[in-house]
Simulated assay, not measured.
Amino acid sequence: MVVIRSVRFLYVQKNHGAKNWNIKLSTNIEHICQIKKASLEGIRFRDRKLHGLTIRLDGLYDIIVQLEEKRVLSNGKDIIMLKQIENRRSIRKYLNKKVEQEKLIQVLESARLAPSGSNTQPWVFIVVESGEIKEKLSMADHQQKWMMTAPVFIVCVADIRCRISEDINVRLDENSPEPELKQIIRDTAIAIEHILLEAEHLGLATCWTAWFEQNAVRPILNIPEDKYVCGIITLGYGDEMPKNRPRKKLEEMVRYEKW
């Protein structure tokens, strides 16, 4: 059962004492599904449930609150994200359909909200829709011609300058020894996964590609040599549904207290 898909609110107030959010409705409600204003009055969400919300400033006071699609099981327990994680696939064939700007911004917003070590936020995202540039990127990315069926590429770049000052000369590639490179790749990978999952939530498809060398990709987009491209994400509406890939059982990968 889908409870709520999307609602527009006028503002959100934080109640510091009660450690929850009071969400007050405006009269402007987007009916993504059948919603009655009265049924949402006085809704409150505890802090630990905020992973189900995306809050984005739109103007000075207008804030959009996107609620996760909620599926209710017969036993009354909720599944918010696990099903979407399970359904996500790497898609290599896309419909000839443009990605709406609103959805693209929401996907990028999910990446912006990703956690990072010491809150360094090393990522930069380059949105590519030009057919000429996409073709150059796909050729640099091991000549994967299927990528051209996707209407949008998101090139995900890690910036080491959040950890190394500008006055230190750095040139990054696959063999760079800097320990900070590992840190920025780690953090940017978290943001990339946010992109994949938010796209799935919005009915979009993705594939994280990285079959390239830095020297082949960076010149196409004028990316400086002290930046590291972690991946090129294809984004669009999928035109295939691959079968489930095998996954290890939980007991094969989980340890308790020690190895």
Rank of each mutant, 00 (worst) to 15 (best):
I160D: 00
W208T: 03
E166T: 04
A158P: 01
A199S: 14
N20M: 11
T54S: 13
E69S: 10
L95E: 10
Q121K: 12
I35C: 06
V152D: 00
I80F: 15
V7E: 05
A111Y: 04
V155H: 00
K77Y: 09
E135Q: 15
L113D: 01
I164N: 01
K19S: 12
A210T: 10
E100G: 14
N222C: 10
G238R: 00
R171Y: 06
L202Q: 12
L60F: 11
L196R: 01
N222P: 02
D47T: 07
I23D: 00
V3M: 13
N175D: 13
I64G: 02
Y94P: 02
D173E: 10
V124T: 08
F125K: 03
C230V: 13
K37D: 07
K136F: 03
D62A: 11
V254F: 12
C207M: 06
R247E: 10
D187F: 04
V65W: 02
N215S: 14
I133S: 03
G231C: 07
E198D: 06
L196M: 12
I23C: 07
L50I: 11
L250Q: 09
I4N: 13
V229S: 01
L172M: 07
C156M: 11
G131N: 10
T149W: 05
E257F: 15
I4D: 11
R48L: 06
E180V: 03
S176M: 05
R48Q: 10
A199E: 01
H16I: 04
N244F: 12
R5P: 04
M148D: 02
S74G: 06
K136Y: 06
E178D: 10
K37L: 07
Y11Q: 13
V65L: 15
M253A: 08
G52P: 01
L25P: 03
L57M: 11
R161T: 02
I185N: 02
W259Y: 15
C230L: 02
N22W: 04
V170L: 09
R56Y: 06
K93T: 08
D239N: 15
A199F: 04
K70P: 00
S74W: 09
R71A: 04
P122R: 04
A189L: 06
I85V: 15
F125T: 03
P246Q: 12
R255P: 00
